[in-house]
Amino acid sequence: MDKHYESVRVGSLTVDPSMDTNRLYMQRDENTAWTAKITENWDVEMLLPALVSKRANGEMVIIDGQHSNQACIIKEGPDFLRDAMVYEGLTIQQEAKLFLAANKHRKPVRPYDNFRVSLTAGDPIAIRVNNEVQALGEDLQVAASPSANRVGAVQALLAMGKKPGMVKRVLTLVSAAWGRDASTWDNLILRGVTMVLDVPGNWELADDARLIKILKKGGAPAIWKQNSVRLTTSGGGSSSRSVPMAQAIVGDYNMGLDREKTLVLGRPKKVASSSTTAAA
């Protein structure tokens, strides 16, 4: 067996589709959602070397780095040269062991630790999230776990941070409704309110004072969360568990309003030019 570093054309790296699907290593179906996420947040400086097996027939098979390689092809083109640790002379069993070594024993990195490193790396979304949280008071900060002045729903914050002003507006709404409390900063709660505002027309049209009133009327965050989880189809992820809450907010908000003033979910809201918008 020989191993060496080599710059490899990303379009020449392949995944063997004929592998036995009962094996526990690299031949997984392409996870398009994960590839799309890497592509959306693409930064060529974050592309790590791939782990590659060069077989006797010259085929270059990816052992680790499949999704980032597909994203690289999309963003940089198939002729981009990627650094790779290339192994030659591996058996199928040895390829499997290398895959397990690269994936099975990785310790998951906590979202907050990722956030801190992202700040150091100058990630614009992490910086925006941090700035918008701190804009609500020097005592409020992103943290690993929630408390009165510590927002621990890091993954929700980063999703919200893709839209300028979203973090500040949502945190202002929920704290006005329930005060600053660990339950206020719950991931499901923040995502639910964000879903309502993330529809383009809703962002401009929503009356924040009315939203606060709706949130208060529905009870404490724990009640909103309990009802939302109860109405979620079994197996739903963190985002899907927030959908019933968002639907309830919109339903209650729209009661008694003329159609042109109502909010929607799932499609852009067409806003008349004369509409009065809430301050973000």
Results as ranks from 00 to 15, higher is better:
Lys3Pro: 01
Tyr5Glu: 07
Ser7Leu: 14
Val8Leu: 06
Val8Asp: 02
Val10Tyr: 05
Val10Gln: 04
Gly11Val: 14
Leu13Ile: 11
Thr14Phe: 07
Val15Thr: 12
Asp16Cys: 12
Pro17Tyr: 02
Pro17Met: 02
Pro17Ile: 03
Ser18Met: 10
Asp20Ile: 01
Thr21Arg: 14
Arg23Cys: 15
Arg23Trp: 15
Leu24Ile: 10
Asp29Glu: 14
Glu30Ile: 09
Ala33His: 08
Ala33Ile: 03
Thr35Ile: 11
Ala36Val: 00
Thr39Gln: 13
Asn41His: 10
Trp42Phe: 14
Val44Glu: 12
Met46Lys: 15
Val52Glu: 02
Arg55Leu: 10
Ala56Met: 09
Val61Ala: 11
Ile62Phe: 02
Asp64Gln: 07
Gly65Ala: 13
Gln66Cys: 07
Gln70Tyr: 12
Cys72Gly: 05
Cys72Ile: 00
Pro78Glu: 13
Asp79Gly: 14
Asp79Met: 14
Asp79Lys: 12
Phe80Asp: 00
Arg82Lys: 15
Met85Arg: 06
Met85Phe: 08
Val86Lys: 00
Glu88Tyr: 00
Glu88Val: 08
Ile92Cys: 05
Phe99Leu: 12
Ala102Met: 09
Val109Met: 00
Tyr112Lys: 01
Asp113Ser: 14
Asn114Cys: 05
Ser118Arg: 10
Thr120Trp: 06
Thr120Gly: 11
Asp123Gln: 13
Asp123Cys: 12
Val129Asn: 05
Asn131Phe: 07
Asn131His: 13
Glu132Tyr: 09
Ala135Trp: 09
Ala135Arg: 10
Gly137Trp: 10
Gly137Gln: 12
Glu138Gly: 15
Asp139Leu: 10
Ala143His: 05
Ala144Ile: 05
Ser147Asn: 11
Val151Glu: 00
Gly152Val: 12
Gly152Asn: 04
Gln155Cys: 03
Leu157Met: 11
Leu157Lys: 06
Leu158Asn: 01
Gly161Asp: 04
Gly161Thr: 02
Gly161Asn: 01
Lys162Leu: 03
Lys163Cys: 08
Pro164Tyr: 03
Met166Pro: 02
Lys168Ile: 06
Val170Gly: 04
Thr172Lys: 09
Leu173Ile: 07
Ser175Gln: 09
Ser175Val: 03
Ala177Gln: 05
Trp178Phe: 13
Trp178Gly: 04
Trp178His: 10
Ala182Trp: 06
Ala182Glu: 08
Asp186Tyr: 01
Asp186Cys: 08
Thr194Ala: 14
Thr194Leu: 02
Val196His: 04
Val196Gln: 09
Asp198Met: 12
Asp198Ser: 14
Trp203Arg: 07
Leu205Asn: 03
Asp207Val: 12
Ala209Met: 06
Ala209Cys: 03
Lys213Asp: 10
Lys213Leu: 11
Trp224Ile: 07
Gln226Lys: 12
Arg230Thr: 08
Thr232Gln: 10
Thr232His: 11
Gly237Lys: 14
Gly237Trp: 03
Ser239Arg: 07
Ser239Ile: 13
Ser240Gln: 15
Arg241Asn: 09
Val243Thr: 12
Met245Asn: 01
Met245Gln: 01
Ala246Pro: 09
Ala246Cys: 07
Ala246Arg: 04
Ala248Met: 09
Ile249Glu: 06
Asp252Ile: 05
Tyr253Arg: 08
Val264Leu: 04
Lys269Ile: 06
Ser274Pro: 01
Ser274Glu: 11
Ser275Val: 07
Ala279Asn: 08
Ala280Thr: 15
